[in-house]
C-alpha cells in the first residue's frame, strides 16, 4: 500500500525506543531463535544420557566447561523469558488482559517471572548443590 504522507522513520535501532510490551515481544522472538539453535544440543544430551552409564556421566560434565556454562546461561534465560512471554500471548489470544493498562502490567510480570525462573534454574542446574 502506497501512502503519500512522509512520516518520520526511525529504523535506526539505537533511536527506536520500544515500550516494554514491544520489548517483551521482540525478546520473545529473539529467545525463540536462540532456543531453535539449542535444539541439536538438547537432543545430543538426551542421546548421551541414555546410551550408557559412561555417557550418562559425560552428559553431566558437559556443563562444566566455561563456554558451555555461559551459553547455557543464555539458553536458560531465553527459555524462561520465552515460556512466560508465550504464556502471556496465549492469554492475549483468549482476550485476557487486552487493555493497555493490563497489557503493560502483564509485560512487567513476564519480565519479573522470567528473571526469577532464570535465577532459579541457573542456580539449580548450573551451580550444583547450592539449593
Amino acid at each position: 500500500m502506497l501512502t503519500k504522507t512522509r512520516r518520520p522513520k526511525h529504523l535506526n535501532l539505537l533511536k527506536i525506543r520500544l515500550p516494554l510490551t514491544g520489548m517483551v515481544s521482540i525478546f520473545h522472538r529473539l529467545s525463540g531463535v536462540i532456543l531453535f539453535f539449542s535444539i541439536p544440543f538438547a537432543i545430543y544430551l538426551l542421546a548421551l544420557s541414555l546410551r550408557s552409564p559412561e555417557t550418562f556421566l559425560q552428559a553431566g560434565t558437559f556443563f562444566e566447561h566455561g563456554l558451555v556454562k555461559l551459553l547455557s546461561v543464555i539458553v536458560i534465560y531465553s527459555l524462561a523469558h520465552h515460556f512466560f512471554a508465550g504464556l502471556r500471548f496465549l492469554l492475549l489470544d483468549l482476550d485476557i488482559g487486552l487493555s493497555l493498562k493490563n497489557a503493560r502490567l502483564s509485560a512487567w510480570i513476564v519480565v519479573i517471572l522470567g528473571f526469577v525462573a532464570f535465577a532459579f534454574l541457573a542456580i539449580w542446574l548450573l551451580a550444583g548443590e547450592c539449593l
Binding site: R29, G32, V33, L35, F36, I39
Partner: peptide, 9 residues
C-alpha cells in the same frame, strides 16, 4: 513450533 516460528521470522 520451531518450523512455524523460524518460518515467520
Amino acid at each position: 513450533h520451531a518450523w512455524v516460528g523460524i518460518r515467520d521470522v
